[in-house]
Design a protein around this nucleic acid. Structure first.
Lengths: 221, 221
DNA sequence: CTATTATTCCAATGATCATTAGAATAGCGC
DNA sequence: GCGCTATTCTAATGATCATTGGAATAATAG
């Protein structure tokens, strides 16, 4: 084997990972899997894709060894193969944020200027939780809450928020978190709460980032 | 703008970075640029590509804002746009190493079993350098040495090693380093030195990794 | 201004990929 | 065994990409 062949073979293997990350839909699927394991069906629904299509993308991710799966009855549940995958994805997004002005532009267009949202950092959140001064709500779908949430948070999926406001006391500040920095659930939740007279803010990051820092995660109801 | 449009636009931006990393040759080019800035010409020679082709790949990398360039006379010199790029590349390779058994296989085929090489870690290298017990040689091309090398190393490009053995004292152990963990220069250098009766080892990582750790780099001759 | 060198742009080719229809599989309950 | 559901596999389509020949550009030297 020549030196050239060796290099070619080596870089080709690395490129498999790049290739897996070269499709917007595959990135979205990985991001969703960062919230916890999910069936093909559920992934398809969240990513707005036909199941067939989702299956094809998962195949590519599986070939790059980024995801694994397990069977339960007729369902196949996919999960990230390693914590490193989320870590890598976050690095990629940070590089995007730094290098690509378009990311900032797109984000500002939809989320308004980020600063207007007065996001809460994890550090501040932990201080506030310790003093028990706030109500922390997890506005993701309930199964994602079950798969892992910040200790002390209560589950109020954004779709049910309007009907469950009675669960949330008015005197205390409400802090919402969801999937991550680009997830809109907490933005929507915050807007609704403020309209109803609550003091409300959102956390700037989500569960995958919380996990990546090695912070404790509560599981189940 | 709907939530769906927002997500699509956002993930499409991130996918630009994945796409840039989805070609083996582009990864090789980034790796080369991790050694220091280089002309299209030089990149083409190192990567074993036609200049035209190299130019096209650099175009893609430039569109993803991973590289920048500067003109000097009729030459264009490309460089990495940010230290984060190398950092990201290294993350990708680590994920590859963990996830892709093929990488191990390819590596072992060419470099023999890695363990046989008795690689020196950066930690050990620094201890040995402090005690001045070894001769440290940089076996990369001379321009890469000039662009940045480990303080205390002397430049002996692997191609010239055979004719410059007189520069290297026989009593002390010789340690060689090159571009990184998959670079074969130091492996070749080590083999030659051992045949000639030297005690020789190689460093397990290279300059990009040294830089990524924030360690001091010497520039020039 | 012309010639020369390094590089890019344009356009066309073939290769690879995403998507999607239709057939096939795997597990389950009967 | 049969029917049902979730998912995958196979194959074909069109879209995108890498590659490459030929023309164009940009800087320099004469």
């Amino acid at each position: 084997m020549s030196q050239r062949d060796f290099k070619d073979a080596l870089y080709e293997q690395f490129a498999r990972i790049g290739h897996a990350m070269s499709s917007p839909k595959r990135i979205e699927l990985l991001e969703l899997l960062g919230q916890g394991e999910k069936s093909v069906d559920a992934l398809a629904a969240h990513a707005d894709l036909p199941v067939k299509n989702t299956s094809a993308h998962l195949r590519v991710l599986r070939q790059a060894r980024l995801v694994e799966r397990r069977r339960e009855g007729t369902y196949l549940y996919y999960r990230l193969a390693d914590d490193k995958v989320i870590h890598f994805l976050k690095e990629m997004e940070e590089l995007g944020r730094i290098r690509l002005a378009e990311v900032e532009r797109v984000t500002n267009t939809y989320l308004r200027s980020r600063d207007e949202l007065e996001p809460v950092t994890f550090g501040e959140l932990r201080r506030l939780l310790k003093r028990a001064e706030i109500t922390l709500i997890d506005v993701r779908p309930r199964d994602e809450y079950r798969a892992g949430h910040i200790p002390g948070a209560i589950s109020v999926p954004v779709a049910e928020l309007r009907d469950h406001l009675h669960k949330i006391p008015k005197g205390r500040e409400v802090i919402a978190y969801c999937r991550g920095p680009y997830c809109v659930y907490s933005v929507e939740a915050m807007a609704l709460l403020r309209r109803r007279g609550y003091r409300a803010r959102r956390v700037e990051n989500g569960i995958p980032e919380w996990r990546a820092l090695g912070l404790a995660v509560a599981i189940g109801e």
